[in-house]
Design a protein around this nucleic acid. Structure first.
Lengths: 123, 123
DNA sequence: TCATTGACTTGATGGATATCTAATTAAGTA
DNA sequence: TACTTAATTAGATATCCATCAAGTCAATGA
């Protein structure tokens, strides 16, 4: 119980991270909360899955729409979706036989902001 | 020679990646070129180093300015700086006794764009 | 030339992780 | 109930990676 399992990105407690990292140095705490999200994006399969989900009609996609076009097994896809879900980059919902994944745009937006380079920084 | 060591982000050949991943699905090739950069950001120490460098006076920082405030050894810092440099997120230059690191803003900007969520996407 | 300081490289190690097969759960249907 | 399909979990394995101690390289100065 001494080390919590890296909570999700969206819910709360990340507001102090919604700042470009070029503006001021991240402190250790902020860095440790942000890094796992970037790590989750650091796998090509997860990046493609997220992009597939986020760009899909209606902002969500069924797992059955995601398994094609990858050279890995279904359990591996499932594993990567779990990583994305646990970090809060996507959410999932079961509807009947199928499970649908939805991209969490606010989480994406936060990470985008962290990496953004505001005009006129460090001329 | 069959598998190149994942080239840097900035130089060239990344222009086709400068698109929000919510706009259309990343293809396998794009994902494999982008993922290593996010992976590089996926470590809290590297995130802090990058932020320290990027936010430092003049847009650059000496290694001697970076080693304090971390709980890891100097070789470990050096290792993380190398990872950031080889992926193209920072560049380095020796001036006399000291080595200075500079953030590559165009690389940061590219990654920020990839994660950005344009208004009105997937209502 | 030798000593000092800054930075990096090397080599080893423990822990994390991507992947698979096999088994399991969940929902629908004959 | 039994069968089928969708998706996940469990367990095993091979690889990757963060870290450190020790050694090396580079620049400066006594």
């Amino acid at each position: 119980m001494s080390k919590q399992p890296v909570g999700p990105l969206t819910p709360v407690g990340m507001d102090d991270c919604r700042v470009p990292l070029v503006n001021e140095p991240l402190n250790a705490d902020q860095a440790e909360r942000l890094a796992p999200s970037f790590k989750a994006l650091g796998d090509p399969i997860r990046l493609r899955l997220l992009s597939l989900i986020a760009s899909h009609q209606g902002g969500e996609a069924c797992v059955c729409d995601l398994t094609d076009g990858f050279d890995v097994s279904a359990p591996t896809i499932s594993h990567h979706l779990k990583v994305l879900r646990e970090i809060g980059l996507v959410s999932s919902e079961r509807r009947g036989t199928w499970v649908y994944y939805r991209a969490e745009q606010s989480a994406l937006d936060l990470l985008s902001t962290v990496l953004s380079v505001p005009q006129g920084v460090n001329a």
